[in-house]
Amino acid sequence: MLEPIILCSVALIAVALYGFYSKKHMIKMIISIEILINAANILIVTFGAYRVPGYVELLPQSLAILSISSAGGVTAVALALILAVYRVYGTVDVRKLRRLRG
């Protein structure tokens, strides 16, 4: 049962990284980050549940819950920022945010 889930999670990571680099819409970038975090969550939960047969460890499960809630926080801040960006620039396309040279 372990391997298919790990493969699924790795696939999710790949999807997220693809979205991260190819999408220019700010909301879509945030969604990519969400996918990335969820891929990690799946890994944690799986390892916590299947690593030792018949025994589910609690700390990794709590780590997953923590990560879900922190992802909520990040998303909230990100959406607030996107709103602010929209007010200032009138767009949510990251290609238009090119004033900083980084």
């Binding site: 980050i33 990335l36 975090i37 990690a40 890994l43």
Partner: peptide, 10 residues
């Protein structure tokens, strides 16, 4: 941080 989380998981 998300990548770090995956690293932690592994």
């Amino acid at each position: 941080s998300a990548l770090m989380l995956s690293g932690i998981a592994i």
